[in-house]
Structure formats: structure tokens, C-alpha cells
């Protein structure tokens, strides 16, 4: 929007575009102050605390086998959960946009539930239904599938909390898709599957990837829903956020912070990647019109 304005009035751009609205200093000043007090200064504490450790100590703390096992579980389960959500989120978005069935509006609204339901509630509810005597667990266990208190339980919890992301990023793109492209593909002899895989799906890739990355980023840091269903066995079903908590409870502040810094760095990298993806996605959608 600003680009349009500046392009129309090149002389105004010279120094500062004159803005007559009041309150810039106050609002920006307050924004930066509040941001610093609540977010930036406390976050910097984590990085400053780590400097108490030498690099060798830091490295040893963040690479002990138990911690490494927790990374593998956290990132592995998050990837699988986000992958499940990519497939079923796409399907859900497709069904909600393209088809009609009774109760569709309610289903559409309930997709947001994992955003709104407290993670602890989700955790105990999932544990209750997937435990050996639960509604689903009592069906799965005779088949030899144990969900609660195993790494599989972690995947289930992380799938739950990431569920809305793919649906909500893909849905608007699918709604805006022009019917003409599909009609053209059909009239050129493509069957329905070819139209989907070569015309529709490529248009959805950026949104799909963004939703996947958002679900993954959310899953990596998740704590509340996982600890109830995971069983929390060291080396087997212990997630990295729980390692941080355990170290804190043992008053190992430096150790907890070291592991936290590793997670923070990875999370920030993910945040940057997501911002890049969203930028790419909006550009693709913009130019497609």
C-alpha cells in the first residue's frame, strides 16, 4: 500500500512522507517499552545466563544422551504430527470448502477447538480415551497398539494441538481459487485427479507449507497436552520442555537455560522461515490474480 502511495507522489518521498496524524511517538514509544519489558529483556536473560557456562560445559549439557533423546522425540514427533496435519488438514479444508453436508458449520467452527481448549484439558482427555481402558484404547490395545504412555501418545497430542493450522491456512486460499483454471484444465482433457494434482495442488503449496511449519513450530514447544499422555520415561518418552522443567526443579538453572537456549535458537529459525514462507505465499497469491 505504501509503495503505491510513494510511487504516485515521488517528490514527497524525499525526506519523510509528511504524516499529519498524531500519536506516533507515544504509540511507538509505548510499543517498544512494553515489548522490551515483557519480552525482550526477560528473553535476553536466558542468553545472558548461558554465558555463566563455558562453551565446553554448555555443549556437554545440551548433548548428554538423555537430552539428545528428548530432541529426537520432540522434533520427530512434531514432524510426524505436522505431517499428519498436512494431509488431513488439506483434506479437511477441501471438504469444508467444496462439499456440503449436515452439520458442516459446526464442524468448521470446532476445527478451532485446539486453539481454545487449554492444553492440560486436551492432555487428560486424550489420555482418558487412549488409555488401555479408554474408548479408543480398549479397541487399539488388543491389536497390539499402545498409544497412551508411549511415544505414539506424544504424536497424538502434537497432532491435536497442530490441527487447526493447516486447515486455517489452506482454507482461504482454496476459497479464493478461480474456477476458470479448473474448467480450463478439464476442457483441455485433464481428468479430475490430474486437475487436482497439477492445477489445484501447486496453488496450495505455499499455504500448505506455511500451515505445516506453524503446526511444527507449535508442536516443538508444546508441554501441557504431552506430559499427561507421554508417560515421561527418560530416553523413551520424555520431551525437551520437560527436561527444562526437571532441571529447574533440581535448581540446575544454568542447565535448564542451556537446553532452553538450544530450543530458542531453533524456534527463532523456524519463525524466520515461517515469515519467509508467508511472504512467498502472499506474493504468489497476489501475482496469481
Amino acid at each position: 500500500m505504501t509503495q503505491v502511495i510513494t510511487a504516485n507522489h515521488p517528490p514527497l518521498r524525499k525526506r519523510k512522507q509528511k504524516n499529519v496524524l498524531p500519536g506516533f511517538n507515544l504509540s511507538l514509544g509505548y510499543t517498544i517499552l512494553y515489548l522490551s519489558l515483557i519480552v525482550l529483556i526477560p528473553l535476553s536473560a536466558a542468553f545472558i545466563k548461558t554465558t555463566e557456562l563455558s562453551f565446553a560445559e554448555f555443549w556437554e549439557t545440551v548433548t548428554t544422551p538423555r537430552v539428545v533423546a528428548s530432541y529426537q522425540l520432540t522434533f520427530g514427533a512434531s514432524l510426524i504430527g505436522a505431517g499428519i496435519n498436512a494431509v488431513f488438514g488439506l483434506l479437511t479444508a477441501w471438504v469444508l470448502v467444496r462439499y456440503s453436508f449436515p452439520g458442516k458449520k459446526i464442524v468448521d467452527a470446532l476445527v478451532d477447538l485446539p486453539f481454545a481448549l487449554p492444553t492440560a484439558v486436551a492432555g487428560i482427555a486424550l489420555t482418558a480415551i487412549f488409555a488401555g481402558n479408554g474408548w479408543l484404547g480398549s479397541w487399539l490395545e488388543p491389536l497390539g497398539i499402545k498409544v497412551a504412555f508411549t511415544p505414539l501418545g506424544v504424536v497424538v497430542a502434537l497432532t491435536f494441538i497442530g490441527l487447526p493450522f493447516v486447515v486455517r491456512t489452506v482454507q482461504p486460499v482454496l476459497e479464493d481459487l478461480e474456477a476458470e483454471a479448473e474448467e480450463a484444465a478439464a476442457s483441455l482433457g485433464a481428468n479430475r485427479w490430474q486437475t487436482f494434482s497439477r492445477v489445484i495442488l501447486p496453488a496450495l503449496y505455499p499455504a500448505l507449507l506455511t500451515g505445516f511449519a506453524l503446526a511444527f513450530a507449535r508442536a516443538v514447544g508444546e508441554y501441557g497436552s504431552v506430559i499427561f499422555i507421554a508417560g515421561n520415561m527418560p530416553m523413551v518418552s520424555e520431551i525437551t520442555p520437560l527436561i527444562i522443567i526437571t532441571k529447574l526443579e533440581q535448581y540446575d538453572y544454568a542447565g535448564a537455560t542451556a537446553v532452553a537456549v538450544v530450543m530458542l535458537v531453533i524456534s527463532f529459525a523456524l519463525l524466520l522461515a515461517i515469515n519467509g514462507l508467508q511472504w512467498w505465499s502472499s506474493r504468489r497469491n497476489g501475482s496469481a490474480r
Partner: peptide, 8 residues
């Protein structure tokens, strides 16, 4: 804050 784990 969305990118930071609640535990952190």
C-alpha cells in the same frame, strides 16, 4: 512469544 515454548 508465539515462537517461544511456554516452558521457556
Amino acid at each position: 512469544p508465539f515462537a517461544v515454548s511456554p516452558v521457556i
